[in-house]
Amino acid sequence: MTAPLLTLAAVGATYPHDDGAVDALADVSFDLAEGERIAVIGESGSGKSTLALAIAGLLPSTAVSVGRIGWRRPMVGGRDIGFVFQDPGASLDPVMNIGDQVAEVRVRHCGEGLRAARRAAIDLLDRVRLPQPSRLARAYPHELSGGQRQRAALAMAIAAGPRLLIADEATSALDTVVQAEIVALIGELVRAASMALVFVTHDIALASQISDRIVVLYAGRMVEAGPAARVVGAPRHPYTQALIAGHLDLSRAPAFPLPAIAGAPPDPFDPPRGCRFAPRCSHAFSACLDEPAWSGGIGDGVRCVGFPLGGEP
């Protein structure tokens, strides 16, 4: 078996703050094989963006990171790792046309001349299904729709042929229809180039559609991970179970009250002691006041005291 492209070992990060440090992420370990697609799911304060930034080496300089992020070979950000943000404006320069921005990546990372890079850029814009790529290459970001901007950002992210694409809530700001198109596009691009993918989302349905493996984060802790089919089909952590039970399906009108998780995600400045989901968990008991250990293998297991004790909680 070949070594994984990426190995995360006990990765974590804290953000120092006026009112004490925020423990944004701790103890995340998993491997990512070449061409593997991992979805990281979580809601606000789950640490999912912190994890995405940590993998890309883009954490703000004020953050204190721990753990080890190991690559099979040296990786260059922007060339070997492509990153797509939720807001495409974050990676697009408003005063440079789309074609030149994509070409710039080729010039910098592939050693191409500007002329060849511009030709390559038009080809890339075509690959992300922008209509009339040679015309849109001359357009500026503000002339594009939100979906088109995200396509352009995607073209930049894959311009240098990365081995890993990280999409951080890349479709959350988009309309349902456009979101579906972009998700399908990311899936195709990744498969065609056998790129690895880290797809960060809050939507477990979206995650189940695009990924081989799902990592569930809650309040800065990795609470469950495993093959997508296993996590969705036989979730072990009460949080994952509740997410799946609460998923609204088009096929039938649900009965009220809908299955709901009580409460809200914890205040990052004042997280609960022990298991961070315990205050909202219907299975919680006294042992949940201790920080639960990870049980299972690397990238396939659960962080819940109740699981090994009582089987399916």
Partner: peptide, 28 residues
């Protein structure tokens, strides 16, 4: 278009228990 675009939870039957692999040393 809206119906097609609505994300659906893909529930496949859970994978069979992982067969023991030679890289068992990776398990904690």
């Amino acid at each position: 278009a809206l119906i097609d675009a609505t994300p659906r939870l893909i529930v496949s039957p859970p994978a069979p228990p992982a067969t023991p692999t030679p890289d068992g040393e990776r398990k904690p």
